[in-house]
Structure formats: C-alpha cells, structure tokens
C-alpha cells in the first residue's frame, strides 16, 4: 500500500478542514472495511486518511420522539444491540445484521456502507424504503439529502469536496408500518447481494396507505423504484397487489451480467425478492397495526 498520512480529528469542523485540504487525495475512515480493502487493492487512492471515529456527532445513536439518528461512524453491532431500535426498525436491523460477518459488523458503519456507494450496499435499499435523510456537513455549511439521491454512480456519492456525512435520520415509525430487507446470496453469509430488496409499507386495515421499495445490485446505484411502492397505495393487502408491485420492480431493474449472475437471472430475482420483502414488511406492519 502507498504511504498516506493519518489524522484523527475530534470535531466535525476539524474533519471538514482536513477533508477540504487543497491538492490532496483525502478519504474519510470509519470502520475501514471497504476503504482499507480498496486502498490495498489500488481501487481507491489516498494520501491523507481522516479517521472520523473520534467525533462525537458521528458516534451518536439516538432514538427519541423525532425518530432515529445514526451517526455516520456508528458500527452495525451498536445498532442491532439496541433492543428499542430493533423493535422500532426491524427492517433496518435486517440489513445491519447481514453486512459482513460478526467481525466486520464490529467495525463496519451504516454511514460507510452508504458513503461507499456500492450498487450492492445492503443498507441503502432499506434506508431508501424508510425515507431516510442524510445529514451532511461541509465548507458551505450543513445540508440534508434524501438517501435515494446520495449515491450517484458506482463508488461515487453526492458529497462535494470537503463534505462529510455526519448522520442518517429516520422518521419515527407510523402505526401499521412494517419494513424488511432481504437479499439473495449464494452462500448464507459473507457474500455480496446478487439482488437485494428493501420494502416498507404502512397499512390501514387491509389496505396499503403508503409503500416504498428499493433494490440493490440491479443498477449502477441502489435503485429507488417509486412506481412499485406507489402501485400499492390504496390497494388491498393481497397477493395480486404484491405481485403487481414486484413485477414493476422487476421491470425497473437494469442489472448487468457478471460473476454474481446473469442479467436475466437477476431481473427474475428482483421480482422474487421484492415479493418476499413486501410480504415480510406486511407481516411486521400487521404486528404494529
């Protein structure tokens, strides 16, 4: 690996200052489970690595009446080890419990999974489905961005030079809401999604009041299929509605053929996984209704 300098700022301001260093290739380091692999393989370059794990805001994990705030450096295990968060956001827990194995979950952060902007990122579809917002700090001040707008190309996110993802915010779950993330992998662990599907629904009796669906690994960025979720709104909670939404998701997918499967196979899996994710989201929604 090429030499890089290392800094470990204590404040967002200091981190933004380092990330804005002119003429330097700067990378933010949270869990390192993507970044260090990429630096080693030469897939990303850095001459300055900024460790953001000592910054208070980035370690915040707060559940209150305004919803859930997850600091960008909070590792996965802290999220699923919190029983209140598990109860409130089981769909999120689906995703954070399967990003890597136990060791990876000790380090990998939700913020890193998002910032890495991999099309296959497991956390992103469920964050999109849950309507999460990214809170960003930067030289021009703070801003927020819906998660679905955060990834712009494979490995590239919407952060401008000097900007830092501070936290992710989710609204409080509504009564009758349920969400789920499911991915298909050939092994049972330690794998990259061939297809991932995140779904959230809000049920009013036997009718969908709201729904959002997003997919992993089927497009250059995690794919928000607004039409699939919209198609459910006002429809009865039954197989026909679910299948119709799954078909929209399937048709919206633009997968490629690679070592993880052919485009045709992936498109097929989009339908299967979407259907299964919606079904699981419904089951959870019924519990909270």
């Amino acid at each position: 690996m090429k030499w890089f300098d290392y800094e470990c700022p204590r404040t967002v301001e200091a981190a933004v200052g380092l990330l804005s260093a002119p003429g330097r290739k700067v990378r933010a380091l949270a869990g390192g489970t993507d970044l260090l692999v990429q630096l080693r393989a030469g897939r990303r370059e850095a001459d300055l690595v900024v460790d953001i794990k000592e910054i208070g805001e980035l370690n915040e994990l707060r559940l209150d009446s305004s919803g859930l705030t997850i600091g960008a450096a909070v590792p996965c295990y802290r999220i699923y080890n919190d029983p209140a968060i598990c109860r409130a956001y089981p769909g999120l827990i689906d995703a954070v419990s399967l990003i890597g194995g136990t060791q990876i979950q000790g380090r990998a952060s939700l913020g890193g999974n998002l910032a890495n902007a991999a099309p296959s990122a497991d956390a992103v579809p469920i964050l999109i489905a849950l309507g999460a917002q990214c809170l960003i700090a930067g030289p021009g001040g703070p801003r927020s961005l819906p998660v679905e707008d955060f990834c712009v190309a494979p490995g590239r996110n919407a952060l401008a030079p000097g900007e830092l993802l501070v936290s992710i915010h989710l609204a409080p779950p509504l009564p009758g809401s349920g969400a789920a993330y499911l991915r298909f992998i050939p092994r049972n662990e330690m794998d990259i999604a061939v297809v991932g599907a995140g779904a959230s629904v809000v049920l009013k009796g036997n009718v969908f009041a709201a729904a959002r669906i997003a997919l992993a690994s089927v497009a250059p960025v995690p794919l928000f299929v607004a039409d699939a979720g919209d198609s459910l709104i006002g429809k009865p909670v039954d197989e026909a509605s679910i299948n119709a939404a799954a078909e929209i998701a399937r048709a919206a997918a633009k997968p490629i053929t690679d070592m993880r499967g052919t485009a045709e196979y992936r498109r097929h899996l989009c339908g299967v996984m979407t259907r299964r994710a919606i079904a699981r989201a419904i089951a959870r929604g019924k519990e909270t209704n």
């Binding site: 390192g32 260090l36 692999v37 590792p75 890597g100 194995g101 136990t102 060791q103 000790g106 380090r107």
Partner: peptide
Amino acid sequence: GNCGSCTIVFDGRIVTSCLVL
C-alpha cells in the same frame, strides 16, 4: 477481512485485524 484468521478483540468486539490500522 474475509477469512477471519486475524481475528482479535479490539475495544470489546471481535474484528479482523487486517482491517484496522
């Protein structure tokens, strides 16, 4: 980070030490 041979306990959690600086 994919084989676990370098597993250590770091700050109370198991991690793969190849992915820690």
